[in-house]
Design a protein around this nucleic acid. Structure first.
Length: 453
DNA sequence: TGAAATGTTGGGGCG
DNA sequence: ACGCCCCAACATTTC
């Protein structure tokens, strides 16, 4: 770096792979200084290794972000390694005097960022891009963190009468010299031998894809959402979850767009309220995980330690492969395998089946979802599994056991969803149920008595 | 963001 | 006309 050159600011992208509503980027750009966009693939101890489906997504999303940055006269620098060390090296190499990033809230990442903040030899600024309300901003009347969704969301909503989101910058000032970047292809995030991602082509990772998905949803999909959201046979949900996880779109942008749709009469109150409540569950999950980081791997309700979970490799395998003999469960698990996604209603049924019908520890299911979901998220995945298992704070009670057949009749009344994913249904090739529903239900209820929960 | 078991009610068939 | 029974349909309780 020459003597008269302005020192750049590093914008460290993490799960905020967007240019609009990105406070870390906006602040760096508005300083007028050169900006070095940086992404670090950090899979060191303490940070959970990204699952296979998410790697597929990340690969595309990084490519999209890099392309967008190039249209603004910039680049995306890619580095692998321990985040603190990589940042130190890039700071030293570029003479950067500042590092900006947007905060994350899951255990492992929180500790890493905290430690890294102390060591870094540049000014650092962190921002909120991921949440409407940060976990520490919300507390109950008695000054504690929330453990029940309804009062949490009621309180959170009242704080949100004014939500802002900055537009994408028009241009980024390039540094005098760019640091070296690794090649994205060398990270081998895309699956090979075999490439199982053929069914993933319904997705368009990246900020543009996320915006298109939101616009399409608010234009058509949200109409009737309150009813249609439970129907896996209809195109009734937003499918924004992977975009949200990677931060290709932020909750503030969704909030503003949804409220605007109501204000202009393009969407009904009841539908948008339901939709935003789903955003509320995401907020709530982050809130709970931040305040109780151990629930990523431990039962939130201690009594569940006594649960007599079964080790049943064959049954678990049948579940993962969609061979349980229960069409709705199998359809869901096959949809997941093929597309990296499963409809929310079906997730509840499939998860409930693993935990209650098969009596297999929710953590085994959580790990499978972590690997196979494109929207796998530390907060949502852990909290939702605990919700289904009944071990969470504001969870579904254990005795609430879905009847997979009844759920199919109710939410896939014509069988269209099930037939799409289980084409051999009705033939001799479709397996017999691996457990009898009534017997499995009785066993699950007994198990709780045994565990005295 | 259940399902099954159990309880209650009320209309209609029938002696 | 009346009581009795049956049994949906709905409501409540229990897991």
């Amino acid at each position: 770096m020459g003597e008269n050159e302005v020192p750049p600011i590093i914008v460290w992208f993490r799960r905020d792979l967007r240019l609009a509503d990105n406070p870390a980027l906006t602040a760096a750009v508005s300083s007028g200084r050169p900006v070095i966009p940086l992404y670090i693939l950090d899979e060191t101890t303490g940070v959970r290794r990204i699952g296979a489906a998410s790697r597929w997504w990340l690969n595309k999303s990084l490519a999209a972000l890099a392309a967008s940055l190039e249209t603004l006269g910039s680049r995306l620098i890619l580095k692998r390694g321990v985040a603190a060390e990589v940042l130190d090296r890039v700071v030293a190499e570029t003479g950067a005097t500042g590092v900006h990033w947007n905060r994350l809230y899951d255990p492992g990442v929180v500790e890493r960022d905290l430690a890294l903040k102390k060591g870094l030899r540049a000014e650092r600024h962190s921002f909120n891009a991921a949440l409407l309300t940060e976990p520490w901003e919300m507390q109950t009347g008695s000054g504690k963190d929330y453990s029940v969704f309804t009062p949490y969301w009621r309180a959170a909503r009242t704080r949100l009468d004014r939500v802002d989101a900055a537009p994408a910058p028009r241009r980024l000032v390039a540094p005098a010299e760019w640091p070296d970047s690794e090649a994205l292809a060398d990270w081998k995030l895309h699956p090979a031998k075999p490439d199982w991602s053929g069914g993933f082509d319904l997705w368009t990772p990246g900020e543009t894809g996320a915006q298109a998905r939101l616009a399409q949803f608010l234009d058509k999909g949200v109409h009737g959402y309150a009813e249609r959201r439970d129907r896996p046979d209809l195109d009734g949900v937003s499918r924004l979850s992977p975009h949200l996880h990677f931060g290709e779109i932020g909750p503030r942008q969704i909030w503003i767009a949804a409220e605007t749709a109501v204000a202009t009469g393009e969407a009904a109150d009841i539908d948008v309220d339901k939709f935003l409540a789903e955003l509320g569950w995401r907020e709530f999950n982050h809130h709970v995980l931040f305040h109780h980081p151990r629930i990523a791997t431990e039962n939130m309700r201690g009594g569940f330690e006594a649960m007599p979970w079964r080790k049943d490799v064959k049954a678990f395998r049948a579940w993962t492969e969609g061979r349980t003999g229960y069409p709705l469960v199998d359809a869901g698990m096959r949809e997941l395998w093929a597309t990296g996604y499963m409809h929310n209603r079906v997730r509840m049924v499939a998860a409930s089946f693993l935990v209650k019908h098969l009596l297999i520890d929710w953590r085994e299911g959580e790990r499978w979802f972590w690997d196979t979901l494109v929207d796998a998220d530390p907060a949502n995945n852990a909290a939702n599994w605990q919700w289904v298992a009944g071990s969470g704070a504001d969870a579904s009670p254990w005795f609430r056991i879905f009847n997979p057949t009844g759920q199919a009749e109710k939410f896939d009344p014509d069988g269209a969803y099930v037939r799409r994913w289980v084409p051999e249904l009705g033939t001799s090739r479709y397996p017999k149920p691996i457990v009898d529903h009534a017997a499995a239900r009785a066993r699950a209820l007994d198990a709780v008595k045994a565990g005295r929960l």
